[in-house]
Amino acid sequence: MVRRIFSSPLTLIGFILVFILLFLAAFAPLIATYNPLEVNFSNKLQPPSSAHIFGTDEVGRDIFSRIVYGSRISLKVGLLVVVISFPVGTMLGAIAGYFGGLVDQIIMRLTDIFLSFPGIILAMSIAAALGPSIENVLLALAVVWWPWYTRIVRSSVLSIKNAEFIESSRALGAHPFRILFKDILPNSIAPASIQASLDLGFVILAAAGLSFIGLGAQPPSPEWGAMLSSSREILREAWWAATFPGLAILFTVLGFNLLGDGLRDVLDPKQR
């Protein structure tokens, strides 16, 4: 299994990128060379050098250290959004698919309503209504994200719910919820969990986007999207202030995508 995952060089690159992100987040205080919030006006807008490898921003903060600490925020948002929306979406999808009828209609029409808005717009309005903070972005994204899992799980439940081993559990007198948790979910959750691993990257991107337009993390928080936003005005004098947070977002999203694609190839032989 492990060997098959890494037989593809792209998957290996994805894994390395994700590993670097996890490493940075875990050991941020040891890796960062400066305090990410420390302001030093005499040292502002320094280009990359041996003292500040990614340069300094408009108030003299070390950009490398800010990116390292920012990985903690991005990872937290990505993981929590998926951890909240995945179980909710999965359960609703399984219930809709297995019980069918009116329950199915209600749940699926609800997901249709959520999916008919562009996710980022809906998240924007929720985050704006709740007030700008990274916690509210997290909540807004979780509210927007679950319908995807509902859709995926429902369709895989539909494909197995008439299998003979399910019928056998019914013939044995198993409670519908036992059948749902013991027979149906374990056999229909794989596609949704692959989607979840791909989504980590997209959630981080969406959170950075919301912070960029000022609805998420507030200055002086070293969130990557917020860093991009504040470096916008000084782009002509200091290219490094926008470039490095941007690259951090790029490689993070790329890493999760490559890893998720690799997982899909391994877990679903039909896609090959």
Partner: peptide, 27 residues
């Protein structure tokens, strides 16, 4: 009780034989 036609579809692929045989007793 019922015995099914397809021996490949009638057993939950994620359960061990022990799980499969114990389930009716637990239920």
């Amino acid at each position: 009780q019922i015995v099914f036609q397809d021996p490949f579809a009638s057993l939950n692929p994620r359960n061990t034989v022990r799980d499969i045989l114990e389930a009716p007793l637990i239920i």
